[in-house]
Design a protein around this nucleic acid. Sequence first.
DNA 1: CTTAGTTAGAGCAGAAATGATCTAACACTG
DNA 2: CAGTGTTAGATCATTTCTGCTCTAACTAAG
Lengths: 253, 253
Amino acid sequence: MPRNKPRKQPPARSAKPYRDSSGATLADYPQPSVAVDTAVLTLAPRAHPAPGAAPHRLSVLLVRRPEGVDGPQWALPGTFLHQGERLADAVTRSLTEKAGITGGHPAQLAVFDEPDRDERGWVLSVAHLAVIGYAALDDALLAHPDRVRLAPVSRLEPLPYDHKAIVAAAVRELRRRYADRPDPEHLLGARFTFRELRDVHEAIAGTTLHHEAVAGTLQKDTFRRAMDPHLQGTGTMSTGTIGRPSQRFRRTR
Amino acid sequence: MPRNKPRKQPPARSAKPYRDSSGATLADYPQPSVAVDTAVLTLAPRAHPAPGAAPHRLSVLLVRRPEGVDGPQWALPGTFLHQGERLADAVTRSLTEKAGITGGHPAQLAVFDEPDRDERGWVLSVAHLAVIGYAALDDALLAHPDRVRLAPVSRLEPLPYDHKAIVAAAVRELRRRYADRPDPEHLLGARFTFRELRDVHEAIAGTTLHHEAVAGTLQKDTFRRAMDPHLQGTGTMSTGTIGRPSQRFRRTR
DNA sequence: CTTAGTTAGAGCAGAAATGATCTAACACTG
DNA sequence: CAGTGTTAGATCATTTCTGCTCTAACTAAG
């Protein structure tokens, strides 16, 4: 939850206060505090990838809350909106300040508006999703292991406020994006093999369905055929990987 | 745009001001004004239904703006958030106050956060969708034709602020909901014939595709087969309708 | 009453999608 | 070097889906 040093600025109003038909300015309306909270999702490499299991684990970034707060000690990174700031910029700023992370294109998820959701007062929170590759997170995780860490989204630990609902919404949105396009968030590089692509999609889908069919369709053949029209082969082949070498592909368009 | 008489309340803060680690209260953070704007979508009956064309027209509710404002004279209904109010409640209130309309379950669409979107100052707008049957709107339209009217969403007239984008988002969301379920917003009653159902879905989809196939699949047979599992027949048959009588259906679950 | 126009609903053949099978090509182990 | 395990990619039979056709049942117009 946001808790930076506040800038002691006056409430928002235009230079020449606008007055409406009843002679009131905007400042006469009650104004909630507005915060952004972000579920940063990434694929963490599994320490000991069980044979046949996905080598990645869909994880969410947590930051340690200030000393002395009640409840869970870890939460999603967030911040209050600064004067005139765009929501996406506030998200980017919060990630830089709280976790030393750059990059990611924040996407709005929903506004959480329960009046009592924050014991500090009336706070609206705009939940966001940011998908960031593990490589871009690694530095921050190593530099501040006491303040920043990853948690798997399956069997998620208790989180304060409605952060659990935010993570759930973020995962839903991510799965929706990955349902019909090959790695749209570029968790892989520009070129990749089919296996690499499938590992990413399986980790995000959360199902191991290596062979077993599951409602919603993600099986070896189905997956390949669904992604095929959005891929084009580069001539080059993978080397050094296990099994028969695969052509490397890149996304079309 | 909202412009009611403001309640001269102080900015939001808890009874016992919460102080964070730097001793600041929430009121020390700059706070934007928060408004809700709602695209009320309905199916207006067509005056002269051309033969073969859908008898409904997907329309959005507009309210007249106060005298003397620049730009378009009609806009989406909206209001500023009251102290401690839920967003959905503010939407319901704005519809009652501005248009005398009750009912509808508002759904959040997105937050519009351009700092300069409103010349009166820093205003965040949370866009909403409400789907309301024409019958519930008819009274208000007849009672206040000078203040409330419907406009077709195809070839939408110019609207102030980013209201055109809000309508576009609302239509997109409505189409998504109607893509795989029979009339989920209950624009029809509990029982209806297949033709009535198809007229509603075609009006929402915007395509006339009576026979002609279109990418995205909505053809007579395809539509019937897609909706079939979500419908169950009541024994009764329609009477007085044109063509062969149809069984009346109701939604399952 | 007859004819034209419209809709409901079943039936059918061709098209497309699915899941399995099979072979090729590599790494790794002993 | 032979054997095992893994993956890539093509091929195939079967299931499922799609769009069309056909008949039945009604209204409205002449």
